[in-house]
């Protein structure tokens, strides 16, 4: 799993490229938390366009980051969500706490 970053104002856009399961979750969590604290990130957008697989471990990663970001008054959203990942997010009620948008500009408008 590779992560790519783009910073727009105080919003960090994280692009996932690969598979997110329990095995990859640990490294992703550490790397993300480092980047979030170093770059003084306020809001977070997860771009899932290149996410080729995700199981419920991914929900843990996203909710964990949401908790940290929301404590400091920031917002979290997801973009380019595939059908199968959408199914998992709906099951977990994730859209009660984070918003889903079609693309980056839509998501940035809502930050």
């Amino acid at each position: 799993m590779q992560l790519q970053y783009e910073m727009v104002d105080h919003t960090l856009i994280v692009k996932f490229d690969g598979e997110l399961d329990h095995h990859s979750a640990e490294n992703i969590r550490t790397e993300l938390d480092d980047v979030i604290s170093q770059r003084r990130v306020k809001n977070l957008i997860f771009d899932l366009n290149e996410m080729r697989f995700m199981d419920s471990s991914g929900i843990g990663v996203i909710i964990g980051r949401y908790k940290n970001i929301s404590k400091l008054g920031g917002k979290v959203s997801v973009i380019h969500v595939t059908d199968s990942i959408d199914k998992i997010f709906n099951l977990a009620g994730l859209y009660n706490i984070i918003s889903k948008h079609n693309n980056k500009s839509e998501a940035l408008n809502c930050m």
Partner: peptide, 14 residues
């Protein structure tokens, strides 16, 4: 460990 507790629910649904 940031486990979501959704594993069995995912299995049941899928």
């Amino acid at each position: 460990l940031e486990r979501s507790g959704m594993g069995f629910t995912v299995m049941e649904t899928f």
